[in-house]
Design a protein around this nucleic acid. Structure first.
Lengths: 245, 245
DNA sequence: CGATGATTTGAGTATTATCAATGGTAGTGG
DNA sequence: CCACTACCATTGATAATACTCAAATCATCG
């Protein structure tokens, strides 16, 4: 199946019929590739479309008036990006390429047809949005109520697990295409402090680093430090209507 | 129209047809009232339903292992609550009554019928979920990247504006049914520090308090301190299909 | 090789948390 | 009506966490 497609992503949660796969594939119109560091869509830009990440990483962020940046989330292959802009004419946050990234473009008006002809897919998309929302809530809890160590650990576990699910982790570890400043902007810390925390995680033997390459040596331990729950949260799409065509 | 109903809420964003109003009303099945402080649905409880707030306030929260609590958001009349649990069999966070609160119960499986028969409403619900998601993102930015003063100010402006939109603010000010500890749990501060910040906001003349009653004297100033944007973010549901019956 | 940007480390500071004590207010039961 | 309790707000004093500033090291790329 198409690597990083919407069909592949939704297929993780529920079985899809042939017609449904085709409908999803038809959504993804143009393809666009942007270089590392480039902004795919800026905050406040006109936003009539959203994206499906095919290859590479993206992150969404907002800038505060004093020049601080908050990174809201990272979008890996198979993730949607920019769909939170649906109910606005202008993007509430910007999308930036953490690596060179390839996305498929989905015009928001094409959701009308999808919702009319494929209610089951519509419901799945809705449920998927709620998954993202829960992830955001968990990040908020981490940033609002945990120590610096915790926050960094939580972010690393989250990324590690998502990458693992998407089968993107080779045995020698994964390349985290993030500066420590970006990590800091994601968890609400300065780059300097992120450095100290990562360093301590290495000393403790929980992770290993080599340049940008990261290996989690003790996922359970890292999860504990990060206050990250275990497997309670397996998505349950079983209540959706049974597979159509 | 039914105060705090889903129809009233969605009607704020787009015109609804008669059939659509009926379909929305049909969703809301039982009614339930719980006392201030009571838990409507606990974290990890089986979650096959979600709620529409009719009267009173609710908040959703998660507990961290060390006993810290993060309040994720407040649900005012007309808001959905617990809908983020859709893709899970067990609730990712708990719902607590901040005041005595009355909710209508919606079984998640009844969404199937709605999505099949009313794609336009389905799309609206989806868009509404994205609105909530954006609010969460803004809170994250506030907690992650602003000072204590900012965070408290941002929360107050947010609540104030939402209450104003729902026409729930009498001229003498609104009763915030929140302890300073709850405010702290929402913005990632201790109750003690929340107290100091609120006190300073009063000294500065931005707000006035009398017991639990709050009045915002200078909304623009409070918004500036809170790093809260102005009117950029007016929802745009204009791209949805035109009104059906 | 020089230039640019990221990481690393140290020293001092600031913001926010923690601890502790006091006063206020509402509710309860006698 | 009053004691009594419980919870919340307030304030001060102290401690800890994370930030700021600064400089040195490293890595990468033309």
């Amino acid at each position: 199946m198409d690597q990083g497609s919407l069909a592949e992503r939704l297929g993780r949660y529920l079985p899809l019929g042939e017609a449904e796969r085709r409908a999803l594939a038809a959504l993804e119109e143009g393809e666009r590739t942007v270089a590392r560091g480039a902004v795919l869509r800026a905050e406040q830009a006109v936003a009539r479309e959203f994206y499906v990440v095919r290859k590479g990483w993206l992150y969404s962020s907002v800038m505060l008036p004093e020049g601080n940046r908050q990174i809201l989330g990272f979008h890996l292959p198979g993730d949607l990006a920019g769909d939170a802009a649906l109910p606005w004419s202008h993007a509430p946050f910007s999308l930036t390429a953490a690596t060179e990234v390839t996305v498929r473009v989905v015009d928001r008006t094409s959701l009308r047809g999808l919702f009319e002809r494929h209610p089951r897919l519509a419901l799945s998309l809705h449920a998927l949005a709620q998954v993202e929302r829960t992830a955001l809530a968990e990040r908020l809890a981490s940033v609002g109520r945990s120590s610096a160590m915790s926050r960094v650990a939580a972010l690393l576990v989250d990324l590690w697990r998502r990458l693992a699910r998407a089968k993107l982790i080779p045995p020698e570890g994964v390349i985290l295409p993030l500066t420590q400043e970006e990590i800091g902007d994601a968890v609400g810390l300065t780059a300097v402090h992120v450095n100290r925390m990562m360093r301590r995680l290495v000393e403790t033997g929980l992770i290993a680093r080599d340049g940008m390459r990261l290996r989690v040596l003790n996922e359970a331990g890292l999860a504990r430090i990060g206050n990250v729950g275990g497997r309670e949260g397996t998505p349950d799409f079983g209540w959706l209507p049974a597979t159509a065509g």
